[in-house]
Design a protein around this nucleic acid. Structure first.
Length: 491
RNA sequence: CGGGGUGUGGCGCAGUUGGCUAGCGCACUUGCAUGGGGUGCAAGGGGUCGGAAGUUCGAGUCUUCUCACCCCGACCA
């Protein structure tokens, strides 16, 4: 078999890049740091969107759309927020071009300078809160539960396809509530949705937790995240949910009259997941042959490949396949029948493996004779012959089994790569040799966190939720600590 | 912004101390055979060698300038 990808062992980063390109998910564009998401990659993103969107709607959220441009003055209204984002904003300063005097191309028309520059949104809190101000007068207007699907721009110094690009796609939820408790409840509700989505759809186990002050969203009181472990032992923050307190309400003067006729600032949340999830999905399950997709997010769940010599054979196969195809569709399974004569079966096998199609069904003359089909599953690469009758049920079960199996595998990987370190030396050794999640005691100070980061490159991914308190001593300073936190090297 | 590297058909690359018609693999086109794991053979199409200036009888190759991209760090979802 021709080798198409760099192996993970050889060079993990290169493997990832190769895979994204060769599986036709995305490519670098002529704009530095920005990617073109290709049809196959976009189809997966659309599936993710559809599922998440329905989860948001089931919990009472509505979609809306706010502008791409944000007046510069808005950004500076919340002090922490501007500090966090100012360094990576693209700015629109002019609104017109003109032909150059020498006739060679066009240039910015300096006379068309904007009175106030516009920022291309790195996130939409400011424009949204500026708008909400007019929407909210009374407790009867609350809660306000809005989500938007959008693109944002953050001028990053270094980019990687899906994991960090200058422009990326995401959803951002922005909600307003009467009380602190209600806003916190919303923050947690969304965090749970993200975790549930990761687990049940992406087949990716995640750890939920709160971020330390250093890692907190600019302008938030508390940031919660889901953290996933990639196959190279590095962590990937895969979604965040923020409790914003009254920070933005105060900055944009968003108030409401409560039931007792008293004016109060609203309580806010914001939360998001991005096309970075694509990177997580790729790195969670894929192997040296290519992408491995969880059936529930695979644009094509079953591909059918005919094997034939003569056209009469193909005609026969076409007929058989048509009945199979109909049965599968009736079961709600997405099927592609690839009977192109321009590519050989072997080529197609390799190609669909590269693209991560969970199940491949091959039908050849031998199968026609025996009334059988060959099924190959992408996750284990196992091949087996089955009778053609009742194949739809077998495939349905198989898709289920694959979904469960890749989750089990990912969970097992996470478990095997989660360690407890009781001394700083032990900690350093684990970071250096195996990577993974490391549970350790920390004294709760930014200084210690930064020291550890500087010395080991590992950061605190989160302070895990739902963990029993286990008093101990900080591995660096020896000061008391009430529970272990999760460290890892991160993307 | 520092350090390193690369620019030669669509992609990946070779091209020696300057030398004559710029080459190889993949991909592409056509034909024939083939078809249960990236098919074989044959014939073909496609290149201002990143750009500009210079040295020279002659530049992909040497000099100067310039542009772009990639990788490694500091910033971040």
């Amino acid at each position: 078999m021709a080798k198409v990808l760099t192996s993970r062992e050889e060079n993990y980063a290169q493997w990832y890049n190769d895979l994204v390109i060769k599986a036709d998910l995305a490519e670098n564009s002529s704009v530095r740091g920005c990617m073109v998401i290709k049809p196959h990659g976009y189809a997966i993103w659309e599936k993710m969107q559809a599922v998440l969107d329905s989860m948001f709607k089931e919990t009472g959220h509505s979609n809306a759309y706010f502008p791409l441009f944000i007046p510069k003055s808005f950004l500076s209204k919340e002090a922490d927020h501007v500090e966090g984002f100012a360094k990576e904003c693209a700015v629109v300063t002019h609104y017109r071009l003109k032909n150059r005097a020498d006739g060679k191309g066009i240039e910015v028309d300096e006379t068309a300078k904007l009175e106030e520059e516009l920022i291309i949104r790195p996130t939409s809190e400011t424009i949204i809160w500026n708008t909400y101000k007019n929407w909210i007068q009374s407790y009867r207007d609350l809660p306000l539960l809005i989500n938007q699907w959008a693109n944002v721009v953050r001028w990053e110094m270094r980019t990687r396809l899906f994991l960090r690009t200058t422009e990326f796609l995401w959803q951002e939820g922005h909600t307003a509530h009467e009380t602190r408790e209600e806003a916190i409840e919303e923050t947690m509700k969304i965090l749970n949705i993200y975790a549930e989505f990761a687990k049940s759809w992406m087949a990716m186990p995640v750890i939920q937790g709160t971020k330390t002050e250093n890692e907190r969203f600019a302008g938030a009181i508390e940031t919660y995240s889901i953290e996933a472990l990639m196959q190279d032992g590095k962590a990937l923050q895969s979604g965040t949910s923020h409790f914003l307190g009254q920070n933005f309400a105060k900055a944009f003067d968003v108030t409401f009259l409560n039931k007792h006729g008293k004016l109060e600032h609203v309580w806010a949340t914001s939360w998001g997941v991005s096309t970075r999830l694509m990177g997580a999905l790729i790195m969670a399950h894929s192997d040296d042959r290519g992408l491995v997709l969880p059936p529930k997010l695979a644009p094509i769940q079953v591909v059918i490949v005919p094997i034939y010599k003569k056209t009469e054979e193909l005609t026969q196969i076409n007929e058989k396949v048509e009945t199979i195809r109909k049965k599968l569709i009736a079961e709600g399974i997405s099927v592609k029948y690839d009977n192109r004569d321009t590519h050989k079966p072997g080529w197609k096998f390799a190609d669909y493996e590269l693209k991560g199609v969970p199940v491949r069904l091959a039908v050849g003359p031998r199968d026609i004779e025996n009334n059988s089909v060959e099924l190959a599953r992408r996750d284990t690469l196992e091949k087996k012959i089955y009778p053609m009758d009742g194949i739809e049920q077998i495939i349905k079960d198989l898709l289920h089994e694959i979904q469960n199996n890749i989750y089990r595998k990912a969970l097992d990987f996470q478990t095997r790569n989660t360690f407890a370190a009781d001394s700083y030396d032990e900690f350093k050794e684990i970071v250096k040799t195996s990577g993974g999640f490391i549970l350790a005691h920390w004294d709760g100070t930014s200084e210690t966190e930064e020291k550890i980061n500087k010395e080991t490159k590992a950061t605190i991914r989160c302070i895990p939720l739902n963990q029993q308190s286990e008093p101990g001593k900080c591995m660096v300073t020896g000061k008391p600590s009430s529970q272990r936190v999760i460290f890892a090297k991160a993307y």
